[in-house]
């Protein structure tokens, strides 16, 4: 049995008085893709956003229970949140490149972590863009403003930016929901490759996507984790009636 990257036990989350996650227990295994599916507003995003503590930005957010990353509770007092976020990267639903050049978008991440050597930065910019399958499209326009790229390119730039920091885990919060089918296919292909070296967690409400890219899948409904298992099991032989109803399209 491999050690899980994340072990979440009894996680409850609230926005003000609204109870959005109810007693979530889940183990996330390394070097695999874990997909979280479920209808909108069922707590998937809240869940994934508690794994790198980006939810701390929301003032009304409150949580109970444990989120352990390599056996270390990330909500403990002595945790370095900045270091946690470096190791647990995140790609957002809406592509959010900074209003800088393509080059500077990636160089920014390195400067943040104190890397000043220009050759090192150049090399990382190139290698991250290559890993994100964007290099060939932008190698002649690295000085162009990132906001002029197409939505799919922007999203891959955001992935490249995340890779440049060399995280261990990458959280994808509905990375394809604002993209066209071709860009979506490219990102899925990319997720497939990244699995070799990273632990990936992807939130999606596209079930085909979950079936295509993931090894494990969890089904969320109204803040509860209804079922969590290997993806093929969830999709072929779900144990819970509600999971079956959802994946066969009877609601959601």
């Amino acid at each position: 049995m491999v050690n899980p990257t994340f072990r979440i036990t009894g996680l409850d989350a609230f926005y003000g008085n609204k109870h959005v996650l109810k007693n979530i227990n889940i183990d996330i295994l390394p070097n695999a893709v874990t997909a979280l599916i479920g209808p909108s507003g069922c707590g998937k995003s809240t869940f994934i956003r508690s794994l790198n503590r980006i939810n701390d930005l929301i003032l009304t957010f409150r949580r109970e229970g444990k989120v352990c990353y390599h056996n270390q509770d990330i909500y403990a007092k002595d945790v370095d949140v900045v270091e946690l976020r470096r190791r647990v990267g995140m790609v957002f639903q809406k592509p959010n490149p900074f209003p800088k050049s393509i080059y500077d978008n990636i160089a920014y991440c390195l400067k943040v972590h104190g890397i000043k050597d220009k050759d090192k930065i150049d090399a990382t910019v190139e290698s991250s863009l290559k890993k994100a399958a964007l290099w060939d499209e932008v190698k002649n326009s690295l000085r162009q403003n990132a906001l002029t790229l197409s939505g799919g390119q922007q999203q891959r730039l955001c992935i490249a930016r995340t890779l440049a920091v060399e995280p261990e885990v990458i959280l994808f919060d509905e990375p394809c929901s604002s993209l066209d089918p071709i860009s979506t296919a490219k990102i899925e292909e990319l997720i497939h490759q990244l699995k070799q070296s990273y632990t990936l967690i992807i939130v999606t409400h596209n079930m085909q996507q979950a079936a295509r890219v993931s090894d494990f899948a969890g089904f969320f409904l109204l803040g509860e984790l209804i079922e969590f298992d290997k993806t093929d099991k969830i999709f072929t032989a779900p144990k819970d009636k509600r999971t079956e109803d959802y994946i066969t399209g009877r609601f959601g």
Partner: peptide, 19 residues
């Protein structure tokens, strides 16, 4: 989303603000 993006990359609050 800019601020979130910066923080998610492991920038400190000041780095996100400043850069």
């Amino acid at each position: 989303s800019y601020k979130e993006g910066a923080l998610a990359l492991g920038a400190t609050r000041w780095q996100a603000m400043y850069r």
